[in-house]
Every structure is written in structure tokens, then in C-alpha cells.
Amino acid sequence: MSSGTNSAIVNAALAGIEDARNTHAAWTRNGGYFSWAPEYLITVSVAQSIWEWCAPLTVWPEFRLSDALREASPNHPRPPGRIDASRRADLLLYRDPQQPHAIIETKRNVDGWGKIAADVERLRTTLAAPSSSFQLGMIAFSSTVMGNGQVKGGFILKDRLSRLADCTDDIRLPGWKCRLTARDVNFDGHEHWSAAAVVLEKTPARHPRPPRDPACTRSAAQVLSAS
């Protein structure tokens, strides 16, 4: 499969989180809680999934943000002041060798907006760099609820994802649309879990409408009689 669309990248990232859960379950003989799985396992699994399903994109793990910003905005080489130049992106995606296309951060077991608020703000600031080549930014994560019974735990997780979606709707970044996307809630016998992502996607530039004829706006339409 060869698809580098933003939708394909998002779907591949969510699939990577699900693959990480299945890998962790296999390694622990289905006895380990996914909420305890190491974050690097999720990051590598997401990178693998994107590399396999979103060719010809290339994937760079642990890429320094200052270098990414310099390549994304070659005419504005200085990164925004709020960006720590030594910080690294979990995954940086390139559509061509010169300019990055997407930045992805991964998290494990996000149980509320407070767990990702700083990451979302850092991502929002990075994507807002002048004349940036970035088209997509994402915080991809797992969310889990241990115990609480099969029915109650599922309700808790669905409510959590709904509240995260409300917080995502409050993100303001001109020229970008922001949403939360999530896979189905799963139950493996001892915990509920879901793969989800806060997605920031650049919107196509809107071409201004041609000005209306002033004559059309100054007077009411006239009805002409044929008689």
C-alpha cells in the first residue's frame, strides 16, 4: 500500500498503537497491563506502521526540533522563542528530502488533558512557524482504564475520550483544523483501552471571492413586466 495522505498517516499511527498493545500482550503472555507499557514501544510501533503503510514518506525518530524548524521554514531560520532548541520530536515525517511534512508525538496512557496539554501547546507553537512546510501535527496516545468492571470501565473511557475531544475543539490555530480521533474501546479481560490522537491538520488556502458588482448591493432587484 502506498499512501501518504494525512488521513493515511493518522490511521497508520492509530494502528501502530494497537500493534504496540498486541505486542505487549504477546510479550507478557496477556498478563501485562497496556497502561504500564513503555512509551518507546509505542513510538517504535507507530514509526513502523507509518513506514510500512505510508510510503514514500520517510520517518525520523528523535529528530531535534530546532533542525526540523530550520528545514520547515528555510526563510525564517530562527525557531519561535517558546521552543526549546534542544528538544526532540518523537517522530518527524518527510515527504521529500528537504522539507518535513508532519510531526508526531507519542504518549502512553493519557487519562486527562493535563497529561498532554504541554505537548499540544508545544506542537501548536511549532506548527505556527512562519511559512512552515508542516501539513500535519499529531499527539498519538493510548488511553486505558484498569478494572472497574466490563460495563463501567467502558463508560469511563468513552466519557474520558469525549472530554478530550471537547478540549481539542478549543485549540485555536489559524489555518488549521483540530480534532480528536479515536478507535473503538476494547476490553481484554482486565482493562479497557483505546488508541486516539489529537490531530492538527493544515487547511487549504481559501481564495477570496471576487468583489460583487456595487450595483447589485445598492438597490433592490427590479421585476420587469413583459406587457
Rank of each mutant, 00 (worst) to 15 (best):
S2F: 02
S3M: 09
G4D: 03
A8N: 05
I9W: 04
I9H: 02
V10F: 08
A12E: 12
L14C: 13
G16L: 01
N22C: 02
T23E: 12
T23I: 11
H24Q: 14
A25Q: 01
G32P: 01
S35G: 14
V44F: 12
V46M: 00
V46L: 01
V46N: 00
A47W: 01
A47M: 00
A55E: 08
L57K: 01
R64I: 14
L65A: 08
L69R: 00
E71N: 00
P74R: 08
P74F: 09
P74T: 07
H76N: 08
H76P: 10
P80A: 14
P80K: 11
G81T: 01
G81A: 06
I83C: 00
A85G: 03
A89V: 13
A89T: 13
L92C: 04
P97T: 01
P97H: 00
P100M: 07
A102M: 00
I103H: 10
I103Y: 09
I103V: 15
I104T: 01
E105I: 11
T106V: 07
V110C: 02
D111V: 13
W113R: 02
I116L: 00
A117L: 07
D119P: 05
D119R: 02
V120C: 06
V120D: 02
E121R: 08
E121G: 03
T126F: 12
T126N: 10
A128Y: 13
A129S: 03
S131M: 11
S133N: 03
S142N: 06
S143F: 00
M146S: 11
G149R: 00
V151S: 14
K152N: 04
K152Q: 01
G154D: 06
G154P: 10
G154R: 02
K158I: 12
R160C: 13
L161A: 08
A165S: 15
A165N: 15
D166I: 04
C167I: 08
T168H: 03
T168E: 02
I171H: 11
R172S: 12
L173Q: 10
L173R: 09
G175A: 05
W176M: 06
W176K: 03
W176C: 08
R179W: 11
T181K: 09
D184I: 11
V185N: 14
H190G: 15
H192Q: 10
W193Q: 00
W193S: 01
W193N: 01
L200M: 01
K202F: 02
K202T: 04
T203G: 10
R206I: 11
H207R: 12
R209G: 09
P211M: 07
P211E: 07
R212P: 15
D213L: 06
A215C: 12
A215V: 10
T217M: 12
T217G: 09
S219N: 13
Q222L: 15
V223R: 12
A226K: 14
